[in-house]
């Protein structure tokens, strides 16, 4: 179980901030999951962790259609833990950006919508 949660933490952290979690973050994540007594394993979450390339698509789908899914809950948990960690503070604190950055954000928004569409297909085809 411990190994499973560590693998899960690594996949979620890499997806959220593009980096591996520290040992301390893995422990925090493990303890937080244990405290929630959530032993179920939703199929979509299981698939997302075993195939991290699918994570963005399933996450985008769940953001619209299943905001309380296990995947969203675990991602939110890891998001909170990473945010409260000095190593990743720069990824969350407001940072100075030029107005042109809005263009990049626009592209991210479009990518998010495309991910949603692909996520919908994956959910339908795989029966998640």
């Amino acid at each position: 179980m411990e190994q499973l949660l560590e693998t899960e933490a690594a996949a979620l952290s890499h997806y959220l901030v593009g980096d591996k979690p520290t040992k301390a973050i893995k422990i925090l994540y493990r303890e937080a999951v244990a405290a929630r007594h959530d032993t179920r394993r939703e199929k979509a979450f299981d698939v997302a962790v075993r195939h991290p390339t699918l994570l963005p698509y399933l996450d985008a789908y769940d953001a619209w259609f299943r905001p309380s899914s296990q995947l969203r809950q675990r991602l939110h948990l890891m998001f909170s833990i990473l945010e409260a960690t000095p190593e990743f503070a720069a990824d969350f604190l407001p940072s100075k950006r030029s107005a042109w950055y809005m263009l990049i954000l626009g592209l991210l928004g479009i990518r998010g919508i495309l991910r949603l569409a692909v996520g919908g297909l994956i959910v339908k085809v795989w029966g998640l």
């Binding site: 963005p56 991602l75 969350f92 954000l105 991210l108 998010g112």
Partner: peptide, 10 residues
């Protein structure tokens, strides 16, 4: 209403 990875930088 976006995936977390895109919502974060936004």
């Amino acid at each position: 209403p976006l995936d977390f990875a895109d919502a974060r930088p936004i």
